[in-house]
């Protein structure tokens, strides 16, 4: 399965992946409009930085995901290897946030933290391919098949 990978030797910590992620999941077709009207989504990718090393973190789409196992509301499910979230079912208990070993589940602060959200590899928006990888200015983030599963 194709996944998003990050090469920390290349990651510059520019945070543009977060910007493009927020835009891709906003439902808007214009980035300025998305941000100026507050429709920009919470980025599902996050740059961890410090000490000269930066890297982007987003859902690894584990083969045996602890978040899905732990979800008390059945909001998380696996569809063709992609871990998806049903925001209507999410009750905001944050069990998944606690159980994710990578810290990849994001609390949706835009709705006051009522639900969580997460990377769905841009399969459920109009970006086509993951926007973080497509727009990475240093090709640090790549979307590729590495035969890990």
């Amino acid at each position: 399965m194709k996944r998003v990978y990050v090469n920390e030797d290349r990651c510059l910590g520019c945070h543009l992946c977060e910007t493009y992620c927020a835009f891709a999941n906003s439902g808007e077709t214009d980035m300025v409009k998305a941000f100026k009207t507050g429709k920009d989504a919470v980025p599902r990718i996050r740059i961890e930085e410090g000490d000269g090393i930066n890297f982007a973190v987003q859902c690894r789409h584990c083969a045996d995901p602890l978040c899905v196992k732990g979800c008390i509301a059945g909001a998380l499910s696996v569809n063709n290897g992609v871990i998806e979230i049903n925001h209507d079912k999410c009750v905001g208990c944050y069990t998944c946030v606690l159980s994710c070993p990578y810290g990849c589940i994001v609390i949706d602060y835009k709705n006051g933290g009522r639900t969580v959200t997460k990377c769905e590899l841009c399969t459920r928006n109009n970006a086509g391919e993951p926007a973080c990888a497509a727009n990475c200015i240093n090709r640090a983030i790549v979307f590729e098949e590495r035969g890990e599963d």
Binding site: L12, G13, C14, H15, L16, E18, T19, M31, V32, F35, K36, D40
Partner: peptide, 9 residues
Amino acid sequence: IKCRACERQ
């Protein structure tokens, strides 16, 4: 949109 990429780069 104040993404601050210019500032970081």
